[in-house]
Amino acid sequence: MSENLVEVKDLKMYFPITKGVILQRHVGDVKAVDGVSFNIKRGETLGLVGESGCGKSTTGRAILQLYKPTAGSVLFKGEDLTVMKGEDLRQKRRQMQMIFQDPYASLNPRLTVGNIVGEPLEVHKIGDSKERRERVQELLKLVGLNPYFVNRYPHEFSGGQRQRIGVARALAVNPEFIVADEPISALDVSIQAQIVNLLEELQERLGLTYLFIAHDLSMVRHISDRVAVMYLGKLVELTDHETLYNNPLHPYTQALLSAVPIPDPHIEDKRQRIVLEGDVPSPSNPPKGCNFCTRCPRVMDICKEVEPEWKDMGTVEEDHWVSCHLY
């Protein structure tokens, strides 16, 4: 087994709810991420899936310390990022970067492509201006863009090309770890495959480690080595991608998989869906016991009282973590 690049332990990220204008009283918390633990191995892609509002993006941002986590620790190469500050943390940021969801909103429209991709180099004071210029052209080539595009502005590019610029910017400082937060969901189907293939090629060439956040389970199965499923701020299941799709244990994972449409009418004609009733409860007031107990088709009495443990049901070779009272 390869070493862990990132170790997340009992990570919590609460956003306070306040009342009053002058004297802001703290009346509750939105528990966006409520105690998640997992490891990311060097060189792998960990997929993080869940529905909107389940806390998957917040988890990604809290790992990179873009939010200050409420509790828990994030070890990057064995060092705890949550206790770091200032210059130490800034140095660490060179090794971990982020690719954002919306390629229309994440590029400054007033900067040229050269400035956008070169900015991380400037911030981290890497090279002189000539070296930076060469590096930017090299990066553009790497992501499949014409290096002569350096003086153009973002509006001159299509969505797929913009996302390539976002990828080039993330790669500028030679990071080891990249959090990709729904990098393809704003793109058209025929363009999505272009970006996914690019991310896979770059991983092979540069030995990158990805945390791939998405809600599209088919794409996550395709790109990930292991997949973590999140529901209402908590992980419900984590295992390698084959096991997750062939032998899902948690009722939520089972329902989620059965809800994904398959582009083949012969299969769709015969498929039995597990259709979940109702909606996701509010993260400011999660149910007692298991978070999924309000919608679970296999709910038992214990589920409404006791929170299930996060336990390993796997074999010696492969982990299979699940939190459910059925097991």
């Binding site: 999505q192 088919s218 395709h222 790109i223 083949d264």
Partner: peptide, 15 residues
């Protein structure tokens, strides 16, 4: 160009 949930992921997508 779209991945399928019911098939393995060994093949590369063809964009």
């Amino acid at each position: 160009s779209i991945p399928r949930l019911d098939l393995g992921n060994n093949e590369k997508l063809i964009p």
